[in-house]
Amino acid sequence: MFVATLAIAFLLGDMAPPFQVPVAHAQEIKERRSIIDFFFGGRKKRKQDVTDTKPRKKKPRNRNSVQSVTTADAPGTVEKLPDARKVIVVGDFMASALADGLVTAFATDPNIVIEKKTDGSSGLARTDHLDWPATLSTYIEEIKPKVVVVMLGANDRQQIAIAGTKEKFQSDAWKNEYQKRIDKLLEVARSRQVPIIWTGLPSFQSNSLSTDAAALNNIYRSRVEMTGATFIDIWDGFADEDGKFIATGSDINGQPVRLRGSDGLSLTRAGKRKMAFYLEKSIRSLADVATMPAIALPGTTDTPAEAVKAAPDIADIKVVPPVNLADPELDGSTALLDDALIPKSSGNSPRDRLIEKGETVDAPVGRVDDFAIRPATPPKVEPAG
């Protein structure tokens, strides 16, 4: 009777169960039984463990913030000299890839420091997001760079607001305003006597985007070269012989590698390094840095002072004795070019005869390609002595 009463009370909810079921065992994943389970038995039920761990909150990432990275942050970088030349890289997300390649390129050079000041969403079409002329002016005043590297245009395939109206991409009004903004950015560096290198855009997987990039490169080249700045075209390094996009090509060592990402926009590590390869020589030249560091030859440090003093100073040589061209006496001849030493010929080389007249030159007698048929020469018979 007591057991029956207890069971009825439990079912009606008036009493709590006399035992507690663990939470992990209480929350079982219920799976639907299939016909295979009906004939061959049920499968073991999977149990879901319940933990009290709280999910970690991810910090929001500001994609529009300007990235600031220096060459000193790269792994394997040598210590930079106190008077190392600073190079600023500004622009959009393509400029960010270029800066990464330059950081790798000059990681072992103590004379050059790369300052990465890029904004992936920036451009010249919209000044409400970021005004590059004003921003570049601030960077030049703070960092005092020797060279400024610019790469823009990947985000500029959009309308431009002019006096309250929006002009379509590549319209006449759009081009005129865009050229003015390029000139304004170039004027910031020119007024402060800082050389600027403008890098052109590479090809892209999208045909329309590549076409627009090529049109923008023509605008950049004309405006940059007009002001005397340096424009570097990298298109051929990321395109085939027809000028079309390639995802795989040769790296700076000539080895086939993947240069572009699967999205057709981004660049791989090898692609970034190849893009920087086009700028290395110009950066060293404008930054007044030797292409290769000076290498001390063996024994040069032990050269006697008397030998150094005895060496002629080329800067002091102003007059040299004349050279008699009629009798140089360099090869035993009595003239500059002895006519007797010139081989007599018709004046037409075998190449000229083959291309101009279609004639082939007879092979020398006895050579493997000498197929001429000649009469047999009877052997000489020595008279009996």
Rank of each mutant, 00 (worst) to 15 (best):
P304E: 05
A310Y: 09
K344Q: 10
D327T: 06
A310W: 01
A340H: 13
A335S: 08
V323P: 03
D339G: 12
N324F: 00
L341C: 13
L341V: 11
L325S: 15
P328T: 07
D327Q: 11
V319G: 01
T334S: 02
E329Y: 10
D339R: 14
P321I: 12
K344Y: 09
G332Y: 00
L325D: 11
A310H: 05
D339A: 15
I317N: 00
S333F: 05
V323S: 07
I342W: 12
A305D: 15
N324C: 00
D338C: 02
D316E: 14
V319S: 14
D313I: 01
V323R: 13
S333H: 10
P312R: 15
P321K: 10
N324I: 01
L341D: 13
E306V: 08
L337A: 07
V323I: 07
A315R: 11
V319C: 00
L341N: 15
L330Y: 10
P343L: 10
P304G: 04
V320Q: 04
P321G: 05
N324D: 08
K309R: 12
D338I: 08
L341E: 14
I342T: 03
I314S: 08
D338S: 12
T334W: 03
P322V: 07
P328M: 09
I342N: 09
I342S: 10
L325F: 03
V308P: 12
A311K: 15
V319Q: 03
D316P: 03
A326S: 11
D331G: 03
P312I: 12
L336F: 04
A340V: 08
P343Q: 13
I317W: 06
I342A: 05
I317C: 04
L337T: 05
D313R: 07
E306P: 06
D316W: 04
A310R: 14
I342E: 04
P312A: 13
A335I: 08
T334P: 04
D338K: 04
P312D: 10
L330I: 06
V323C: 02
D327H: 02
A315P: 09
I317P: 00
E329G: 15
A326K: 07
A307C: 00
D338L: 03
A315H: 10
I317A: 02
V319R: 08
A315E: 06
E306C: 03
P343S: 14
P321Y: 07
N324G: 00
G332T: 01
D331W: 06
P304I: 01
P343M: 14
K309D: 04
V323F: 12
L325N: 04
V308S: 01
K344F: 13
A310K: 15
I317K: 02
A307I: 09
A305N: 13
D331E: 07
T334Q: 13
K318G: 11
K309E: 02
D338F: 02
D339K: 15
S333V: 04
D327P: 00
D338A: 08
D339F: 13
E329R: 15
K318S: 09
P322I: 03
K318T: 07
P304S: 01
L330W: 05
V308G: 05
A326C: 07
E329V: 08
I317L: 12
P312K: 09
V308Q: 12
S333A: 02
P328S: 05
A305K: 15
A307P: 00
P321H: 11
P328W: 01
A335F: 08
E306T: 05
V319E: 07
V319W: 01
A310F: 11
V323W: 13
A335W: 05
K318A: 09
